[in-house]
């Protein structure tokens, strides 16, 4: 087990390093933009004295690295500064949005992963026959449609024409379960369209490799039923790659759904960052960037560790 824990420590260290690197890039990026916080807070008409005073107050005359350290130290305590546009603490604005994004991505993954993995297995079992071709073609077609187009098509058909679902996926604290389902259905379908093709193809590739392995042939030679060969001998070995694929799909859904959140006006993190960029709300942009990277890196870490636990050769390496 010592080797596994050493691997775990190394992966955690690398993840922390990646997050630190992202935070630096984000911070330097926002610092390099023309105009600063004082200007943004006071507006164009501010007097130079007022600007200077506020800059001193905010510590903007300090060297970049000192400002970065101060920002990181505050961020570690949950303080990402104050939003320029609303004047409220950034963290208070981000947390509910992050929760919304996690709900949307969770719902998307709950639909996409079983569907895509199931289709991938089916495709592999009927490799190069019509079910495989049909699944491959349809999923490629859906993948090739731009997300905003599928989003608006779904709205046009199911919201405008049929009226089954709302066109805008508005959710509030008071929204009940039915309201959530109605709000999430169309974005989740759009998400499924973009994300399932990759998951499906990766699953198919993993299963095809396993099906052509010697141990699957051995299971067939032993006279086991086809169902048992697949369920007991092939699929367990697919666990590890499929876990990786599923976690990456989930991560993609959280950070890669900006367009979908905008199309459906869903109050998630993606929409928040787009709005923040529009208002030049720099503390908000920086904080969103860091939150995205933390979520993405943690999910990657979880994917690696789970995939390793599901594989005896990696779990019990001598």
């Amino acid at each position: 087990m010592s080797r596994f824990s050493r691997y775990l420590m190394a992966r955690i260290a690398a993840s922390v390093l990646a997050i630190v690197a992202v935070s630096m890039i984000v911070f330097i990026g926002t610092a390099l933009l023309p105009g600063d916080a004082a200007q943004a807070i006071l507006g164009q008409e501010a007097t130079p004295q007022a600007l200077e005073e506020l800059r001193n107050q905010l510590g903007l005359h300090l060297p970049l690295w000192q400002r970065y350290l101060a920002w990181v130290l505050a961020a570690l305590q949950g303080d990402f500064g104050v939003s320029f546009s609303s004047g409220r603490p950034v963290i208070d604005l981000i947390l509910p949005r992050l929760a919304n994004s996690l709900i949307l991505a969770g719902a998307g993954a709950a639909v996409t992963v079983p569907l895509a993995v199931g289709l991938g297995i089916l495709s592999a079992l009927y490799r190069d026959r019509w079910p495989d071709r049909a699944i491959g073609t349809i999923s490629m077609l859906l993948l090739s449609l731009p997300t905003f187009l599928t989003g608006y098509l779904l709205i046009k058909i199911f919201a405008v024409e049929l009226g089954w679902f709302p066109a805008l996926s508005m959710v509030r604290r008071s929204t009940d379960l039915m309201g959530w389902i109605r709000a999430l259905t169309l974005p989740v379908i759009a998400l499924t369209f973009v994300a399932s093709a990759h998951t499906m193809r990766l699953t198919r590739t993993a299963i095809v490799a396993i099906l052509s392995s010697d141990y699957v042939m051995m299971a067939e030679i032993k006279g086991l039923s086809p169902a048992r060969v697949i369920l007991r001998h092939a699929l367990p070995n697919a666990l590890s790659p499929v876990i990786s694929i599923a976690m990456l799909t989930f991560a993609y859904m959280i950070v890669g759904v900006v367009v979908i959140e905008v199309v459906f006006s869903y109050a998630g993190l993606g929409k928040l960052i787009i709005d923040a960029v529009g208002y030049r709300d720099l503390p908000m942009v920086a904080a969103c960037g860091v939150v995205f990277s933390v979520v993405f890196v943690s999910l990657n870490l979880a994917a690696d560790v789970l995939a390793m636990l599901a594989n005896p050769r990696l779990r019990l390496a001598a």
Binding site: Y215, K222, G223, N237, P312
Partner: peptide, 24 residues
């Protein structure tokens, strides 16, 4: 045929390392 192989016949493969399922 499968029943015959399950009950009355066996096969020993060339590469045991590849023919044993790594998961079990």
């Amino acid at each position: 045929l499968r029943a015959l192989r399950r009950q009355r016949i066996s096969y020993v493969a060339q590469s045991a390392a590849a023919a044993f399922n790594p998961f079990w």
